[in-house]
Lab assay of single mutants.
Amino acid sequence: RVIAMPSVRKYAREKGVDIRLVQGTGKNGRVLKEDIDAWLA
């Protein structure tokens, strides 16, 4: 299970990103909004 705040999950869904593919850089591997942006870049 991916650790991410609900707002980040929603952001990823809106961008069409599968959050399971994104490498989290936050505490304990948490996926941050910046990680979604970096994955899209």
Rank of each mutant, 00 (worst) to 15 (best):
R1Q: 13
R1V: 15
R1K: 15
R1F: 05
R1N: 15
R1G: 11
R1A: 12
V2F: 05
V2I: 11
V2P: 15
V2N: 07
I3W: 04
I3D: 13
I3S: 10
I3E: 08
I3Y: 04
A4T: 05
A4E: 04
A4I: 08
A4F: 03
A4G: 04
M5K: 14
M5T: 13
M5E: 12
M5R: 12
M5W: 11
M5N: 13
P6W: 11
P6S: 08
P6H: 11
P6T: 09
P6Y: 07
P6M: 12
S7Q: 10
V8L: 04
V8I: 07
V8Q: 02
R9S: 03
R9E: 03
R9K: 10
R9W: 09
R9L: 05
K10R: 12
K10V: 12
K10L: 14
Y11G: 01
Y11Q: 03
Y11E: 02
A12M: 01
A12W: 02
A12R: 01
R13H: 12
R13M: 15
R13D: 06
R13P: 00
R13G: 06
R13I: 09
E14A: 14
K15A: 07
K15H: 12
K15M: 09
K15T: 15
G16P: 00
G16N: 14
G16Q: 05
G16A: 05
V17Q: 02
V17G: 01
V17A: 06
D18M: 07
D18N: 13
D18S: 07
D18K: 07
D18Q: 11
D18A: 06
I19T: 04
I19F: 06
I19W: 08
R20H: 14
R20N: 07
R20M: 10
R20V: 07
R20T: 07
R20L: 14
L21E: 13
L21V: 13
L21C: 09
L21M: 04
V22M: 08
V22P: 04
V22I: 08
V22G: 02
Q23S: 11
Q23P: 13
Q23N: 13
Q23K: 14
Q23A: 10
Q23L: 15
G24L: 02
G24A: 09
G24Y: 03
G24Q: 03
T25H: 11
T25V: 04
G26E: 04
G26L: 02
G26S: 09
K27M: 11
K27V: 07
N28K: 14
N28Y: 10
G29A: 06
G29Q: 08
G29V: 02
R30Q: 07
R30G: 14
R30F: 13
R30W: 13
R30S: 11
R30M: 13
R30Y: 11
R30L: 10
V31W: 01
V31A: 03
V31T: 06
V31E: 00
V31P: 03
V31G: 00
V31I: 09
L32P: 00
L32H: 10
L32S: 07
L32T: 07
L32G: 12
L32F: 09
K33S: 10
K33P: 05
K33W: 06
K33D: 03
K33V: 10
E34G: 11
E34H: 12
D35L: 01
D35M: 01
D35V: 01
D35H: 02
D35P: 00
I36K: 00
I36H: 00
I36T: 00
I36Y: 00
I36F: 00
I36V: 10
I36L: 06
D37H: 06
D37G: 03
D37A: 04
D37M: 05
A38F: 14
A38N: 14
A38S: 14
W39F: 12
W39M: 11
W39P: 01
L40Q: 06
L40H: 09
L40T: 11
L40D: 05
L40E: 07
A41W: 15
A41G: 13
A41Q: 15
A41K: 12
A41L: 08
